[in-house]
Design a protein around this nucleic acid. Sequence first.
DNA 1: GACAAATGATACCATTGTGGTATCATTAGA
DNA 2: TCTAATGATACCACAATGGTATCATTTGTC
Lengths: 136, 136
Amino acid sequence: MKLITRDTDYAIRALRYIAAHKDSIVSVAELVDRLKIPRPFLRKLLQILNKEGLLESIKGQGGGFRLCCSARKIYLVDLMKIFQGDLTLNECRFKKLLCPNTKTCLLRKRLNRIEKYVIKELKSITLASLIGEADE
Amino acid sequence: MKLITRDTDYAIRALRYIAAHKDSIVSVAELVDRLKIPRPFLRKLLQILNKEGLLESIKGQGGGFRLCCSARKIYLVDLMKIFQGDLTLNECRFKKLLCPNTKTCLLRKRLNRIEKYVIKELKSITLASLIGEADE
DNA sequence: GACAAATGATACCATTGTGGTATCATTAGA
DNA sequence: TCTAATGATACCACAATGGTATCATTTGTC
């Protein structure tokens, strides 16, 4: 079980690079060259990030991508939500239904504690912090 | 992303029941009746638990399963390892190889902290604690 | 205006993991 | 000997993951 999937991972790599070069427009070609991520796959990810409003795209010759906003305002959990869906480590479904005895189940209690911690920690991670910039 | 898969979940349900009836031999039929888990699937899980040494099996008429040892000595992480493989939330592979800059990667640092906590917490969960018995 | 360099949109595909089912062999109590 | 139990093993359907391929559209440059 992995906390982040490859999509999220690649997206972070790309965003880190773009954030570190925030004064220029970064093209897919440049990212492929630096990050060694398969070009068509990277393009798909960037298009998703654009649709989701995290990246701004510039079409045409000389085009590329840049951050929509400050790296301090981009959170890892946003990426995870985009590429991995909602962050529920511990949703107990039994035969498609939510397990009825969630309240009394001792296992759920333990796992919920863990989940709360993980989510709290993940929510504190910004793109800025991943490139060594202070969060404010 | 889920912390535990259905295999693990069902295995826990079965083990909990068996642990709570530790003075008798519990048959698959009984477990199916009480837990409503698909019989062939449950059988497979029990056979694995038997092979892995967590359950002792008694063949023939009147046969069934019982715990190999005290519920205090059975850990959730053992089950997770059996059914889900090694517990690494944060192994960063890039093109099949371990990512070379694990040491400097700020993301890895953050995720490693989370992983350490999760593993520590999971390691503290015994089967006994899941049926409300003290761990000693 | 034509061309080329860029992204947008979309459809497809292979592999793996998850969550099962089916079948036959073996053991042992009544 | 019959039957109720587990052991072993092979198979299967669906979804998620990790991609690829292709064509349309936009825009700067000559």
